[in-house]
Simulated scan of single mutants.
Amino acid sequence: MSEKVTSVTAEAINFEGIAAALKEAEPTKKASRTEAFNRLLPDVEDAILRNIPHKRILEVLAKNGLKLSAATFKKLLDEARKNQCEIEKIGVPGGGMPPHATGDQIGMKYGQGGAR
């Protein structure tokens, strides 16, 4: 069974309606969880640097509304670190550091290093 392909004219498309619907669309649970994790990434990385066990980090996240399995935590952390490496390779538009970079990370990038 084949589908009939029809051409669409610009007049037939409700651009404003589509734009409004996309603005109102809710992210999926996975997207929301990933977004929340990425927002907390500097704090998670700081806890890891302070030798806080992943299990304890997961407990704190869950207690505060972000429930993740150990496997999901690892996956999100690995993805975030991979993305961070890509940003550092290609740079951030306009130069500088990514918006979530901490003062110590900025100093370390430019050879000033923070005391840890």
Results as ranks from 00 to 15, higher is better:
Ser69Asp: 14
Val8Asp: 10
Gly95Ala: 09
Ala70Pro: 11
Ala47Gly: 01
Pro93His: 04
Asp78Ala: 13
Pro93Phe: 07
Thr72Asp: 15
Leu41Trp: 10
Leu41Asp: 10
Ala31Phe: 09
Lys30Tyr: 13
Ala80Lys: 07
Gly96Ile: 03
Glu26Gly: 03
Arg56Thr: 11
Gly103Pro: 08
Pro53Asp: 11
Glu86Val: 09
Asn83Met: 10
Lys89Asp: 13
Leu68Gly: 02
Gly94Cys: 08
Ala20Lys: 14
Lys23Asn: 12
Ala25Gly: 10
Leu77Met: 14
Glu26Thr: 12
Ala47Glu: 04
Ala70Trp: 06
Glu45Arg: 03
Thr102Val: 06
Glu26Cys: 02
Asn51Thr: 06
Ala62Phe: 00
Lys75Arg: 12
Asn14Met: 07
Ile57Cys: 01
Phe15Asp: 11
Thr34Arg: 09
Glu45Ala: 09
Glu86Cys: 07
Glu26Lys: 09
Gly95Asn: 08
Gly17Ser: 08
Lys63Ala: 09
Phe73Thr: 00
Ala21Tyr: 09
Pro53Ser: 06
Lys67Asp: 15
Phe15Leu: 11
Leu77Lys: 13
Ala19Phe: 12
Leu49Lys: 09
Lys82Tyr: 05
Gly65Met: 08
Glu45Thr: 04
Val60Glu: 03
Ile18Asn: 06
Ile18Phe: 06
Phe37Ser: 06
Ala12His: 09
Leu41Arg: 03
Cys85Trp: 02
Ala47Trp: 00
Leu41Val: 05
Pro98His: 06
Leu66Asp: 10
Asp78Lys: 12
Thr102Pro: 12
Pro27Arg: 03
Arg50Val: 04
Glu88Asp: 14
Thr72His: 03
Glu26Ser: 10
Ile48Lys: 07
Asn38Gly: 12
Pro53Gly: 03
Arg81Glu: 15
Pro99Lys: 05
Ile13Thr: 13
Arg81Gly: 07
Ala12Val: 11
Glu86Met: 10
Ala101Asp: 10
His54Met: 00
Lys55Glu: 15
Leu40Trp: 02
Thr34Glu: 15
Lys29Trp: 04
Ala70Ile: 04
Cys85Gly: 09
Thr72Gln: 15
Lys89Tyr: 02
Arg56Ile: 10
Ala10Leu: 13
Thr102Asn: 07
Glu88Arg: 04
Thr102Asp: 11
Thr102Cys: 04
Ile13Pro: 14
Glu79Ile: 02
Leu22Asp: 14
Leu76Asp: 14
Asn83Pro: 02
Thr34Ala: 09
Thr9Cys: 10
Val92Tyr: 00
Pro98Tyr: 06
Arg50Ile: 03
Gly96Met: 02
Asn51Ser: 12
Ala21Asn: 12
Pro53Arg: 04
Gly17Ile: 01
Ala25Leu: 11
Glu59Ile: 00
Gly17Tyr: 01
Phe15Pro: 10
Lys29Asp: 14
Ala47Pro: 01
Pro27Ala: 08
Asp46Gln: 10
Ile57Asp: 00
Ser7Gln: 14
Ala80Trp: 06
Ala12Cys: 05
Asp78Val: 13
Ile48Tyr: 02
Arg33Gly: 06
Ala70Gln: 14
Leu61Tyr: 01
Ala71Gly: 13
Leu68Asp: 03
Asn51Met: 06
Lys55Cys: 03
Pro93Lys: 00
